[in-house]
């Protein structure tokens, strides 16, 4: 009976939703002369970037991305602060049983392929779907695979924090160097090149590579902290 009422309610709301969406877009786009046309126009003509979303995220709204990176950094720091404990044996995790030879050999072969895919995704952020955040996450999954397969695999927190800090510092420095060239913070100041070239788009690929390094280091450190947690 309960389920019947739920289904009926869902059907009624769905009907009214469909009815109200029917009229949308009948006489042209809903937002006329909005900021959308500006983005679509400038991305190809001025920035020579194939991926519009990347140009919005990194160039037009680069300041937001800086905030996003900061939020991720703060989340990783907070989780590390909660889970951190002084341990006697660093790098030894409590495992129920060691993983089998098949998993060990397979992950050894898969690890470079995953790293390569992650690097590809963030290097081609301005040409194809993806970008720094996605590529960094893919790299972190590669480290997760190695950490699950080998119980003595360890990553150095020191190296990770250096990578993370330098990536963040260079992100801000690139923004500031735009100001020295007489433009605004995080505005493009480098030659844009041709459409669909790997070396094109001004500062977009450089900033996405930095973001990729930063996200990969952050998430790897996060996974390592969570896996090392002991009862």
């Amino acid at each position: 009976m309960k389920k019947l009422i739920v289904i009926l309610l869902l059907a009624v709301t769905g009907y009214f939703m469909v009815i109200s969406f029917m009229d949308l877009g009948k006489d042209g786009p809903v937002v006329k002369n909005g900021v959308k046309d500006f983005y679509l126009d400038k991305t190809v003509s001025e920035l020579k970037v194939a991926n519009t979303i990347t140009s919005i995220v990194v160039n037009f709204r680069g300041f937001d991305t800086l905030g996003e990176v900061t939020v991720l950094f703060l989340a990783a720091t907070a989780l590390g602060g909660i889970l951190y404990k002084k341990r006697h044996h660093v790098g030894e995790r409590s495992v129920l049983f060691p993983s089998s030879t098949i998993v060990k050999a397979g992950s050894k072969l898969l690890f470079p392929a995953i790293i390569l895919l992650g690097v590809y995704v963030f290097v081609h952020g301005h040409l194809s779907p993806g970008g720094g955040f996605q590529g960094g996450t893919i790299i972190a999954t590669g480290f997760l695979l190695m950490l699950l397969a080998y119980d003595n695999f360890s990553v150095s927190h020191k190296v990770l924090s250096y990578i993370e800090s330098f990536a963040g510092i260079f992100f801000v420095l690139f923004g500031l160097s735009g100001m020295f060239m007489g433009k605004t913070f995080l505005e493009n100041f480098m030659p844009v090149g041709n459409l669909n070239d790997l070396f094109s788009g001004g500062i977009i690929p450089i900033i996405y590579i930095l973001v990729g390094f930063k996200v990969a280091a952050e998430l790897t450190g996060l996974i390592y902290t969570v896996l090392n947690e002991k009862e």
């Binding site: 993983s99 089998s100 098949i102 998993v103 397979g106 992950s107 898969l110």
Partner: peptide
């Protein structure tokens, strides 16, 4: 990769 994961 699929056989390895299912084996695990």
């Amino acid at each position: 990769s699929n056989p390895i994961s299912s084996h695990a």
